[in-house]
Design a binder for these strands. Structure first.
Lengths: 66, 66
DNA sequence: ACTAAAAGTAAATAAAACTTTACATTTTAA
DNA sequence: TTAAAATGTAAAGTTTTATTTACTTTTAGT
């Protein structure tokens, strides 16, 4: 699963720690998701979606399904 | 997290077992998600999205975030 | 009403997401 | 150029998602 978190953080001038705070998760969780180590839970994806005002599909792309 | 899986299954005339097969998960997993026992992983949500040709937001609603 | 298919549920287990602590490396700015 | 901030990473532990097996209840068709 690919994601645009790094770019979105840059646009909003958020550090990983900033984003983690706003999402209510740890900095390491944000880092791991950003680096593709694992995928966020659906609720966390929804939080990101709301924060950046983008659809989940605009933030995450599942390359497995074409 | 609410979802429209039961209705979508009805529209497509899928049993829980049918849907489970198409998604590559167990029937009990489909049942549990449908009954709101837990949320699907993000990759599983994407599979559902593709199968029903609906956005994740059209299938799942996070009532926690208004 | 009977039967079979579908749906609901539960317990035990496995796998994945996430936390915490901690330290190393890279980037930025004074 | 060096100090601080930001990022990367790792291990151990917790929580949540998903599986398997198995049994009960509900629904639909005859």
């Amino acid at each position: 699963m690919k994601n645009r978190l790094k770019v979105l953080r840059a646009e909003y001038n958020f550090t990983q720690a900033d984003l983690a705070n706003k999402l209510g998760v740890s900095r390491q969780t944000v880092n791991a998701i950003e680096k593709g180590k694992f995928d966020p839970s659906l609720p966390l994806a929804f939080k990101m979606s709301k924060l950046f005002q983008l659809s989940i599909e605009e933030i995450f792309q599942n390359e497995e399904l074409e």
